[in-house]
Nucleic acid binder design. Structure first.
Length: 447
RNA sequence: UCCUCGAUAGCUCAAUUCGGCAGAGCGGGCGGCUGUUAACCGCUAGGUUCUAGGUUCGAGUCCUAGUCGAGGAGCCA
């Protein structure tokens, strides 16, 4: 019996006869010779058919086989440097071919660049293109690496609710939905507050799921529905948080490199840049970061840059600031100690400097910007009440959250990491919408 | 919410500073080719130039309004 193989393992079958099941991605016919580039989900492999090797009539069908036709191909595997594909360098000589379905001839995705609108309208088919296939394979590995590292480092996976009663952080806009007799519920934009409850039972936890933000952001870094992993730890301060984050991110990058090199290469990613991503990561304070940006602003001659890089102590960083800052580093860089006024209500103040809080963002290199945001949380019940009042947040909604500080409060910290931004950085792609199978943006909920 | 840009064949795009016959490549169809890499060669079909007005002898092109989209600011992961 001929083994049915996956293309990603084809190197193990050189010289053997195998069966490959998949779809015709491209067809090139040259008279009595035809090349089919077949994808099977695990890779792309070239299948070569000679007219003389096949039953009369069958070759004529293959020559006319439309793109995306489903086929079962059987024949010997050969190593051949000329053969394209992913991983490439191998081909299957066609001895038998079963045409499961000859696809319709009006398949809309051409083997070349498409406009954004067209590609997104056809996302259900665009997913079949090698670039999208490669990116989403990297995404799956990023997710797997996230869970693997947390699960093997004492974290307990906790699912936090997606339907929530109110804003976790009062600032951003929420999607709302009717909720029986209770009035309205809101789609979660973070599981953090629930995780702060969870740590008092489990010590170290993480939640991982979709989050929703009705922000009217229209940039290459934003989705309205995106995936976020949020670890939270009891007995953890800001320094320990940064140590943990760099181990975590380093692990994810190295595992992607180990398992997804063919995919990254097919995307044209510069692997040497990722190979450098190992702990420790540089750490700079917000104060120093402001000074660095101010200096860069003074050094640039570009008037547009000068305007974009305007900064004063107390302002949050915009994308241009982050990009300028990270361009100075080859690794992700921690920026810690942001002004209290630009951050959420629950962040622990810096000892002796109430205008600064114990927050930290991790900014990815090559212009990819913020991939994690975290902080040490306020552990004092009195201070937390004070902050709720300052932010004009209702005590009633936060009653349960305040109780966490009354029954065994401890220093604790956590962060959130955006999966799509991380995947975009790994893959070196331009736009976050390619880092999720079916992107949701302010202008798109189809398909 | 603001700024900038865009919309022409199924797709990607042309169509001359300054208005004058609607074009090419890919994809489709037909034919050719035993090593193609988004193959190549020949033939062929394919158009309400986003919508509505306006200027003009004449508008894809100029003007007005609108629709849709893009990426940037703000906000954020």
């Amino acid at each position: 019996m001929t083994p049915i193989i996956r293309v990603e393992q084809i190197a193990d079958y050189v010289g053997q006869e195998v069966t490959v099941r998949g779809w015709v991605y491209n067809r090139t016919d040259k008279g009595k010779l035809v090349f089919l580039l077949v994808r099977d989900g695990s890779g792309f492999v070239q299948c070569v058919a000679f007219k003389g090797d096949l039953e009369p009539g069958l070759f004529d069908q293959i020559v006319r086989l439309p793109q995306e036709s489903s086929v079962v191909v059987t024949g010997p595997v050969r190593a051949d440097q000329r053969a394209p594909g992913i991983p490439g360098g191998f081909e299957v000589g066609v001895k038998q071919i079963e045409i499961v379905q000859a696809a319709d001839e009006d398949y809309p995705m051409a083997l070349k660049e498409h406009g954004v609108d067209f590609a997104l309208d056809n996302r259900h088919l665009w997913l079949r293109m090698p670039s999208q296939w490669a990116i989403l394979r990297v995404r799956a590995t990023v997710i797997s690496a996230i869970r693997e590292w947390l699960d093997s480092n004492g974290f307990v996976g906790m699912d936090t609710p997606i339907l929530t009663p109110a804003a976790c952080e009062g600032t951003t806009t929420l999607f709302e939905t009717p909720y029986f007799d209770e009035g309205k519920a809101y789609l979660a934009q973070s599981g953090q507050l629930y995780n702060e409850a969870n740590i008092f039972s489990f010590g170290k936890v993480y939640c991982f799921g979709p989050t929703f933000r009705a922000e009217k952001s229209k940039t290459r870094r934003h989705l309205t529905e995106f995936w976020m992993v949020e670890p939270e730890m009891a007995f953890c301060d800001l320094d320990q948080l940064m140590e943990l984050e760099e181990q975590f991110v380093g692990h994810i990058v190295q595992r992607v490199l180990k398992e997804r090199t063919p995919e990254l290469k097919s995307l044209g990613r510069d692997l040497s840049k990722l190979e450098k991503i190992t702990p420790p990561f540089p750490r700079i304070s917000y104060d120093d970061a402001v000074a660095m940006i101010d200096q860069m602003r003074a050094e640039t001659d570009d008037p547009e840059q000068k305007e974009l890089l305007k900064i004063e102590w107390g302002m949050d960083f915009g994308a241009p600031h982050e990009t300028a800052l990270t361009n100075r580093f080859e690794k992700p860089v921690f920026v810690y100690g942001y002004p209290t006024q630009v951050k959420a209500f629950y962040m622990e103040p810096w000892p002796g400097r109430p205008e600064v809080c114990k927050s930290v963002d991790l900014l990815a290199p090559e212009g990819y910007g913020e991939i994690t945001g975290g902080s040490e949380r306020i552990s004092s019940p009195d201070l937390l009440v004070e902050r709720l009042d300052q932010h004009k947040l209702p005590h009633e909604a936060f009653k349960w959250y305040l109780e966490l500080r009354r029954f065994g409060s401890v220093p604790h910290s956590g962060f959130g990491m955006g999966v799509e931004r991380t995947v975009s950085w790994m893959c070196g792609i331009e736009h976050i919408r390619e880092a999720i199978p079916f992107p949701r943006t302010i202008k798109r909920v189809y398909p």
